[in-house]
Write a protein that binds this DNA or RNA. Structure first.
Ligand SMILES: [Mn+2]
Ligand SMILES: [Mn+2]
Ligand SMILES: [Zn+2]
Ligand SMILES: [Zn+2]
Lengths: 138, 138
DNA sequence: TACTTATTGAAAATGATTTTCAGTAAGAAA
DNA sequence: TTTCTTACTGAAAATCATTTTCAATAAGTA
């Protein structure tokens, strides 16, 4: 699987594959760090100098709409995006360098049910994120 | 415990207790809904007409600094604040009305350790949030 | 009551994101 | 290939949230 997958997805959904979009997709696809629009812009401009920041916003918007990327929420801000994995996952984030790992294996069913009962809420989804220092940064 | 507690805390930390701050504190203290600065402003102005939005921002900043309120992250945005509970807690949020409940009783130690071992991360903190519909909204 | 200085709201500045717009080019169809 | 429609582009302007500046005010200690 390469970034071509994403370009195909864009195409299959009626969007055009352009040089600007290729540059953005090349930066974000498979990147293990959460990137802000400006960071994407700076990196993508190395591949395609004429790129405009507006197009970065517009492309990220479409990638998010197709669930190819997802927004990353952190104590320092919530404007970064990361390549989305498939299905329901959780994030482990390095507070220093922004590296992201996915993990599964949470077992929140019992907790969720118990809280639903106690509170009367109908629980629809959950967010679980771990923060720390990656092997490099610690 | 009333909102006077918060005013005392402000005072004890060298901040002055003013009419503007009273109005903001009165709105946020004990409120079970996550409120954005504008929402706080609109509600607080009913009590103190001359209030400026700038002062809302400045007061929220100080309340957050004193850990009396905390920022709430949601799919629709991350600008809202809620009265903070004591110590480490988790949030249950109504997606419709923004009502917030705190809960404890997560047991993530085993999961956290297992992920730390697998990934080499040094894990420092976690976020766990549940989203759904409150008894009223469902 | 007097005095120091933190706090105020208005206005301006900033920074991020969105909208507008006229030119360009993707890509389907011929 | 060429034509043709229209999605896409980047620049500039507009918008929106938040922060800074500033001179006047008022909290609260002495
Ligand atoms: Mn889960
Ligand atoms: Mn916990
Ligand atoms: Zn790191
Ligand atoms: Zn509700």
């Amino acid at each position: 699987m390469s970034s071509e997958t994403w370009l195909e997805q864009l195409h299959d959904n009626g969007y055009r594959v352009t040089a600007a979009r290729r540059a953005v997709v090349d930066v974000v696809y498979g990147n293990t760090h959460a990137l802000t629009p400006i960071e994407v812009y700076d990196q993508a401009r190395k591949k395609y100098r004429a790129l405009g920041l507006v197009t970065v916003y517009r492309t990220l918007e479409k990638l998010e709409e197709l669930h190819l990327i997802q927004r990353v929420h952190q104590p320092i801000g919530c404007q970064a995006f990361i390549s989305a994995g498939l299905g329901h996952q959780h994030l482990l984030l390095c507070k220093t360098c922004g590296q992201v790992e996915f993990f599964e294996g949470d077992d929140l069913d019992a907790l969720t049910k118990s809280i639903a009962r106690k509170t009367g809420y109908q629980i629809q989804e959950h967010w679980l994120q771990l923060f720390g220092l990656c092997a490099n940064c610690k």
